[in-house]
């Protein structure tokens, strides 16, 4: 695979996911492009309905039918993994891609002890004997910061608090030394002071093991602290991609810019928060042209007519016509029609 060598660890190209319904085909993802490099933490952010969770599920082949991949490619570690059989995908998940979900209880079987779930997973993916697997399980629990790890192997998930459970899930995800971890809202269900602990553990372990992370969340604070690079999603596409510092402080796309501005911070007190008017279009009701055009303060005729592709912005790449040479020629500067908020 000569082509594969040059690719990043995870490379998603033009990914389309749709849901067939009786009212027609509902496009949920409209061509998602993103990549994760070896050892890098990519934050995927967006508001609910932007398609960030669906992207994660599609990458690891966990889409629930009838939703299905309509187009695009997913490359992992130099091989194409979209369209692989369920068995082949299952081997990749767990062994080479670890998965962490929002609710730790969905990833843990309530009927088995933590120790059994860990050793089983370890032995599925690694060639280890029972004793060695148990030793490894203790090491893992120790690494994720569970006190007295050896004595907790016999405990059931319900005996752990939410934060401890999420630590166990991280241990499970890490147990086969995966190259990539996909974490979907890993801290959303936890209390703020516990969130910080879990982010810390995730960040430390991935750095130590050199594991890349695709961190999907709506919480910009979490992204700001954890990610190296950020992909901002809007209405089923990635609309901006850049380093975390640039996206947070100096976003190129008007949507990301507005989004960052609308988040209250502890540092400063302002009279009114800058707000983006309107709301993200619903799935199936995404307008022609740029999906953000109806809410955009900079909108021009060009935006309404044609959908922009990713292009080099100020400091990041953004899907916005402002950064195209055609912007200067396009008419209709300023003056978007009034749109009701909400």
């Amino acid at each position: 695979m000569a082509d594969g060598a040059a690719r990043p660890l995870l490379d998603v190209r033009g990914l389309k996911v749709g849901l067939p319904t009786r009212r027609g085909h509902l496009p949920i993802l409209n061509g998602v492009d993103l990549h994760v490099k070896e050892g890098e933490v990519l934050g995927v952010v967006g508001e609910s309905g932007a398609g960030k969770s669906i992207t994660g599920l599609a990458v690891i082949g966990l889409l629930e039918p009838p939703a299905r991949i309509d187009g695009g490619e997913v490359w992992f570690d130099g091989a194409r993994i979209d369209g692989l059989s369920g068995d082949a995908l299952r081997r990749i998940r767990g062994a080479r891609i670890g998965v962490i979900f929002q609710d730790p209880l969905t990833s843990l079987n309530p009927l088995y002890t933590i120790g059994r779930q860990l050793t089983e997973t370890i032995r599925t993916h690694m060639d280890l004997g029972a004793d060695a697997a148990e030793k490894r399980a203790v090491e893992l629990l120790d690494e994720v910061g569970i006190p007295a790890a050896a004595s907790r192997l016999g405990a059931y998930p319900h005996e752990f608090s939410g934060g401890m459970r999420q630590r166990v899930v991280i241990a499970l995800a890490l147990c086969a030394h995966p190259r990539l971890i996909i974490a979907d809202e890993p801290t959303t269900a936890l209390d703020v002071s516990i969130q910080a602990q879990i982010i810390g553990v995730l960040k430390r372990l991935c750095r130590e093991h050199g594991t890349a992370v695709m961190l999907i969340t709506h919480d910009m604070g979490v992204i700001a602290e954890t990610a190296d690079r950020v992909a901002v999603m809007y209405a089923g596409r990635v609309i901006e991609d850049g380093t975390v510092a640039e996206v947070v402080r100096n976003a190129s796309h008007p949507y990301s810019h507005g989004l960052m501005g609308s988040i209250p911070t502890i540092g400063e007190r302002v009279g009114r928060l800058p707000q983006i008017r309107g709301a993200m279009p619903r799935v199936g009701a995404v307008p022609e042209g740029c999906a953000f055009a109806p809410r955009c303060p900079e909108v021009r005729d060009l935006c309404r007519a044609e959908r922009p592709v990713m292009m080099g912005g100020k400091t990041t790449s953004a899907a916005c016509w402002q950064y195209s040479p055609r912007w200067a020629d396009s008419a209709g500067a300023a003056g978007a029609e009034a749109v009701a908020d909400g």
Binding site: A224, A245, V248, R249
Partner: peptide, 24 residues
Amino acid sequence: RLLLETIPDLGMTGRDREAVAGEV
């Protein structure tokens, strides 16, 4: 102080946090 230190915030890009022990 613990709450203020641990809350993920936009202004905290790239900060390394001290894990705070304990739960409620």
